[in-house]
Design a protein around this nucleic acid. Sequence first.
DNA 1: TTGAAAGCGCTAACAT
DNA 2: ATGTTAGCGCTTTCAA
Lengths: 339, 339
Amino acid sequence: MSFLPNEKNASKASLDDVAKALGVSKSTVSRVLSGKGRISEETRNKVMQCAAEMNYQPNVIARGLAQSKTFNIGVVLPYEKDLGEIPFFQNCLTGICETVSSMDYDVVVAMAAADDASQLERIIRNRKVDGVILTRSVINDPAVRLLKENSIPFVLIGSTSDDSVVQIDIDHESACSELTAYLLSRGCSRTALLLGNKSHNVNLSRYNGFVNAYEQSGKAFDAALIYDNLSGRRAVELAVGEIINKGCDCIICGDDYICVRALSALKEKQIAVPEKIKIASFYNSPILQSYTPPITAVNADPFELGETAARTVLSLINDEDFCKDVFLSYELSIKKSTL
Amino acid sequence: MSFLPNEKNASKASLDDVAKALGVSKSTVSRVLSGKGRISEETRNKVMQCAAEMNYQPNVIARGLAQSKTFNIGVVLPYEKDLGEIPFFQNCLTGICETVSSMDYDVVVAMAAADDASQLERIIRNRKVDGVILTRSVINDPAVRLLKENSIPFVLIGSTSDDSVVQIDIDHESACSELTAYLLSRGCSRTALLLGNKSHNVNLSRYNGFVNAYEQSGKAFDAALIYDNLSGRRAVELAVGEIINKGCDCIICGDDYICVRALSALKEKQIAVPEKIKIASFYNSPILQSYTPPITAVNADPFELGETAARTVLSLINDEDFCKDVFLSYELSIKKSTL
DNA sequence: TTGAAAGCGCTAACAT
DNA sequence: ATGTTAGCGCTTTCAA
């Protein structure tokens, strides 16, 4: 009853076992299985069949040792518990897993707080990954520094002002254009645009999208209603004050931090949203998700972000030519704040 | 300017490099670094110092090859997108990561639908993990079958009727006791208990907890208000009907599926919660999380579940003696449904 | 206490 | 087209 030859003492056969069973050399088997090097059709078939019969499964670890690869992608997730409240990261992870596993890679996760990349550091030190995906953008991210120092290929889901970082994000120009057009169609004749740091490409894209939408519509926008380089609570407050005085009926916020500040400024001034003024924003982050009233915004599909990030980091690893500027689809989520 | 000797061409030194630099053998260095085998204090210090100076970092992959280990734990997360809506899994994952990384293990994730364990299968086939943590209980889980077939140590976060599976869950007896006591203190004199499959240990625990609470309080319970082996929507409906006729003022549901069914039965009968009858449940799963009115329930701390699962699977892997019955702290989350 | 050597399972020159 | 031989970086007998 014990030691049945055809039994599933599965996945124990090594490449060497297959070679011996066939009376050929290891390299021959290796060549067949890896598809590299020329092999006669005959031996190829012989090997394939034998490998299948023996239920041979290559040892990825050993292959990795020999090639200095791990076939693992590191994914850095936020450590903060309250960030877990939206499905964003889990859906991202799902997209990443699905994509990398189709290339026979696996995902190693590391949690990291905004100021603590120690888990990532371990993974790098232990040589557990060939590349890394950062799932959120953090100013002055220690993870970015670490990855650069160690020359690990990585991509960031989101946007940063550091142009040397490969970023995966939606097409902000087109998204902002669509958002602006929607608002125009809703009758907003005087829409303000509140943008953050001008040197940040993403803000330029939003600006362009805004302008485009106006051009398409044939209407003219009031340049005095465009604010950029807004940084800090105070700057937004001031801008909102001015905007109100200029009689605008709608605000587009370049990001959710600006939006939160604008909302609190409006609340302070007792200006009702959306009755007195409409407001819309961009986000990938959760802080607006549960706001009252719900805020109209441009949303990225986290699953797709994950997929794209995965594909991109895999190309980086394999030195394939890849498109650094990634344009992703998005979704205009119309909520009460613009009705 | 190039080739500075003290430069950070970091983490490139191998064990062999250290050995040569010291004029000792690889095995000596290996012994020192692994702490195995006797080594003179003198050489030990010498090696330690040199390794530090050379910024030597052991190659975990190579070590793994030699020891047939990976120093990775697989974590299976639900694939379904709507399950991502609660922070449960992310917090679990955080607890797991934190714990395993303290033992110098890493986490490899696999997403799995209830009926599709193919990603887990890949990870096993590729020998990427030494053990696995399942983060939710699925009836007839293909993942469980797979893990057993391959003799991979694993634990389940949650409960299952399969006693051969190591389960990490809260102490249901004590939790049910506490819940019952709370309800008694709130003046519920006729509390019904609705339990699922009797052969499932967890239900016995809940039953015992219920009885204990009554005994402690000195009051007597009505055995006619205890239902077990409830399975299917119809059974719960019938039970609820009877319970109402028997004039009970409170229902404790053994799990959230039962609770959902009981709630819909009550709604059908137009019996208001909590005005006419109070109701409480147990859960680890999200389906009750967003119910109106909010449901009082016993909650586990996902972070702690993760930590414990991680510790347990690590002991399994290292053949340490471990406690199979894991009792975890929980939290009575009082909501409107019992007020 | 230490060293030599074999081996983990695979890949990749270098031969033939 | 296939075999031979070294490794990859570490652990682990077996000797010394």
